[in-house]
C-alpha cells in the first residue's frame, strides 16, 4: 500500500474517531479535541488528493496544500474562541457543562 493511500485511510479513521469524540464526549474540552482530530483527518484526505495530483514537476498539487494551510489556521482560531468561551463559562457559572438548563421550560 502506498504512503498516500495509507495516509488517506488514516485520515478516514481519524474522521470517525473525531466525530465520535465530538458527538459523544460530554466535556467541552474533549469535544474540542475531537473536533481537532476530525479536522486533521479531513486535512489528511486533502493530503492524499494533493499527493495523487503530483504533476508538472511538483511532488504534490499545491492547491489542496494551500487549502489545508488555510484550514489549519481557521481550525486554530476556532479552537481559541472555543477555549475562551469555555473558560469564561466556567468562571461565570462554575461549571463546564453543555447540557441545556434542565427544567427552565419544562418545570411544569
Amino acid at each position: 500500500m502506498s504512503a498516500p493511500t495509507l495516509a488517506g485511510l488514516t485520515g478516514a479513521a481519524l474522521v470517525g474517531l473525531g466525530l465520535y469524540g465530538l458527538l459523544v464526549h460530554p466535556h467541552p474540552l474533549r469535544k474540542l479535541l475531537g473536533f481537532n482530530l476530525l479536522g486533521s483527518g479531513v486535512f489528511l484526505l486533502f493530503g492524499i488528493i494533493a499527493r495523487k495530483g503530483a504533476a508538472a514537476g511538483f511532488a504534490a498539487d499545491p492547491v489542496p496544500q494551500a487549502m489545508v494551510i488555510t484550514g489549519i489556521v481557521v481550525a486554530f482560531c476556532a479552537t481559541a474562541l472555543s477555549v475562551a468561551l469555555l473558560l469564561r463559562l466556567f468562571e461565570a457559572g462554575g461549571a463546564a457543562t453543555l447540557r441545556p438548563d434542565v427544567g427552565r421550560d419544562d418545570s411544569d
Binding site: A78, L89, P100
Partner: peptide, 14 residues
C-alpha cells in the same frame, strides 16, 4: 448565553 454560544460554536464547526 455563553453556554448557548459554545454549543452553537461546536455544532457549527462540526
Amino acid at each position: 448565553t455563553l453556554q448557548a454560544a459554545l454549543r452553537y460554536l461546536l455544532f457549527a464547526l462540526l
